[in-house]
Every structure is written in C-alpha cells, then in structure tokens.
Design a protein around this nucleic acid. Structure first.
Lengths: 223, 223
DNA sequence: ATCCTTTTCACCTAAGTGTGAAAA
DNA sequence: GGTTTTCACACTTAGGTGAAAAGG
C-alpha cells in the first residue's frame, strides 16, 4: 500500500472555508457536512478489493469560544470528555481498485450530531471543539467483513489520509458571519437565502443548452 | 466512429417501466423524465473531443388513448401536427474521449413540456403521443461550436444510439395506476407518497454503515 | 436575580413529485 | 357526458433565521 495516493477533489472549496475558519453545524437529528469530503485514489491494484472509511478525530484537548469583537476563535478551556470514535465504511464499499481509480468517493451522506444518545449511526461530536476528518483505505481479504466489526489489521493492509484544509470547529449555530455567507453562496441547498445578485457561483448546475438549428441525423444505430 | 459503443446504465429501471408501458408527465413549466437517461461510452479516441446530444422523436403518426376497462393503450386517430425537433447538447460538453469512457453521462436536467410557446429550452411534446429518446455523439472539430448552431456534419462525425426500452407516451396525468405506483416507489422525489411498508426499494441510498468496534489506525500519512 | 453564551425549535426557501378537485 | 388539462396543495430533504429556552 506504499504507493497509494489520495486526492481531495473538493480542495478548492475547502480552502476557501479554511481561510475563514471552517464551522460545521451539528444538530440533534444530524446535519450533513458542507463542503463534502470527496476523494479519488491512484496506485491501487485494479483487481484487489478495498473498503473506504471515514472518521473524525479531535484535533486537540481544547474547548473554543468565538470572540465577536475580534472576529476570531479563542481557547476557552479544556475539552469536554471525549466521545467514542466511530468508523464509517462508505456505503458503496467494497470497491475494486479499478472502480476506485475511475470514480471519486463522496461522503455526502454522512451526518454530524451532538446527540450522544444517537442510534441512527451519525457521527457524534462535541460543540465548540476542533476536529479533523480522516480517510482510510483498507485492503479487503476474503475474511474481511464489509459490515460488522473488524478485529485486527496487519500494518500492510490499510493507509490513512489526512487533509489539513478540512479541519473544522463543530457548532450548534454559526459564529462567524462570513462562514454563513460562504455556505449560503456555495451550498446549492441554501439557495433560498442567496441575494438575487450572486457574487459567487460555485454550483455546477449549468442550464441545459439548446441548439436553435436542428441537426440532421439520418442514420440510426441500434445498440 | 464505427467501433463506438453506448450502454444504457439505467436499463434495469427502464425495463421495469417498459413492461407496464412507460408514461412521462409533461407540464406547462416542464417536468423531468423518470427514469433518467444515463449512458456510458466505449471505443472512443481518448484525446478526441466529443459532444453528447439527446433528442426525442415521434415513434409513429398516431394519437393514443387509455382504455381503463382494458387497462391498455389504444390508437385514437392520427397524430397532431408535428412539433419542431430540438437537439440538446449535454451541458458538460465538450468531453474528451478519456472523460467519456470514465464517467457516465446523465440527462437528468432535461425537462418535458406541452407548452408550445416555451422559451426556456425544454423539450416540447404532444400529449398522448408515443416518443423515442435518442443519444447522439458528435466528434468535435476545431470549428464545431459547443454552443450556437451547427451548419453541416459529415457522415463520419457522429453516431446515434436508440434504446427501445426507453419509448414512452407523453401524458398530462398518469393513466395507468401501476405506472404511478412504480414512479412513487422508484423516484426518490416521490418519497412522500410511499407506504410505510415499502415493497420495492430501487433507490440506492443505502444507510451509512457504522462499525461498532473501533479500528486501530496508528500511522497517519499526509498527502 | 442578572447577564452572557449556547442550544433548540417552529418557520420559511427551494426543487421535484403525485393528488384530487375544478376547469377546459 | 366523457376525456384531458390545470392548479393549489401537501410531502420530502436540505439549509439558514431569529426568537425563545436552557445553561452556567
């Protein structure tokens, strides 16, 4: 697994958020992450089967608060008691190496919650704490279950990738107004709050283009 | 272009609808097609640029009506005056052959309307008429515009693919109740009408699976 | 009791979908 | 009188709002 590479496809967007200090909303019922973690791999064995996993780990042992007058995050004390870490197998796993090198893997369905009693499988985080998402790729052996539990892993069987631009602070309400603005402008699901005069245009939902002159297609091939 | 192949990725779903007699709603403001036409290509020149187009042509010169007592479609006379055919360039065009062989092309944004005055570029169809969608792949020359109008095409420059399982009758309201049921069960946007006891489960939105036992990841690679 | 911070919740936007009664 | 079309409505998921509630 030494030559495996992992690319963050959504790096540009993550960078924009990272510059402002990324915040992710966590709710009782679970909230998606935005931006989404979307990655692609290279250097895999095309015929080997792999699982792709994601988890989110605390970056430090601190609790943060937002200083409005300075528009910046300050340390506000020691972290709350840590929560049990959960690993999330991408639902399309297992992938063949061939598949993985052709398509990107998107963790758009993953949701964050502050509900410690959550039973729906969302990631449980502490509010006002700093986190780092991670991506893991695991070589699947005959015996590796795709669902269920892992018991042991040899060192050769997996690799972990960390993208520092994806660190974020979990919040129950946005603190930095610039983050709110960037979310509204870049998340298609927040369209309802955009000004009619859009300054930014991240969404790739280009209009269907129509030709005004008909083409002539006289030969039809059945396939 | 002789060796180009085109595969209908959503064939299974189309087949299910075709068995019942596919109906597509057309409205004044435009309605998406469901199932979506999603295709992939092979046999292309990786470095060549291509445009992918779709159009929808009348299958015959007939008008249909639905006989409720027999639960089947009957011919109800001659077709209404034909409407001008429009060709729709996929908004992501042009593609390189390499891109096209790695990803599938989805026409999910295309909308159908019965409004002959439509200025938004949707496909205009006659209600109660039978139609056949077609996919065209066109080799892009330096001079070929991606937007605008084509003036002429050499015979070697394109191929047209037709999937007979994608024929449908345009309607303003569903006629066959079994079609309504299948749409509700298979279109994620119609979830609100599903019984709590889902018999069918076409949507691929599998729940994220969670491991209950933590894995041990001690080696972190920055990438 | 006061004050400040953090969390919750009912509410509205948005697009896509079928409903069912009314209008053609 | 029967068939076809329209339209306001309700539902789903995802997202931010802003006032009220909860915490400390």
């Amino acid at each position: 697994m030494e030559h495996v590479h992992c690319r963050l496809e959504t790096k540009d967007l993550w960078d924009k958020f990272h510059d402002l200090g990324t915040e992710m909303i966590i709710t009782k019922t679970g909230r998606r992450m935005f931006p989404t973690l979307r990655v692609s791999f290279s250097g895999l064995d095309p015929d080997q089967k792999y699982l792709v996993l994601m988890d989110i780990i605390p970056v430090d042992n601190k609790r943060y608060r937002y200083a409005y007058h300075r528009s910046s995050w300050l340390v506000a004390g020691k972290a709350d008691p840590p929560l049990p870490n959960r690993y999330h197998v991408h639902p399309d796993s297992p992938f063949t190496g061939d598949q993985l090198q052709k398509q990107t893997v998107s963790f758009e369905k993953l949701k964050l919650t502050n509900n410690m009693m959550d039973k729906t499988g969302h990631v449980i985080l502490n509010s006002m704490h700093k986190y780092q998402p991670r991506i893991h790729i695991v070589k699947k052996k005959e015996s590796t279950p795709c669902q269920g539990s892992f018991t042991s892993l040899d060192a050769e069987e997996y690799r972990t990738f960390v993208f520092p631009e994806s660190v974020f602070i979990a919040v129950t309400a946005y603190q930095n107004q610039l983050i709110t603005k960037l979310k509204i402008d870049s998340n298609p699901f927040a369209k309802g709050f955009r000004d009619s005069t859009r300054l930014t245009d991240f969404d790739s939902e280009g209009q269907l283009f129509r030709l005004t002159f008909p083409l002539i297609f006289d030969r039809i091939f059945y396939d």
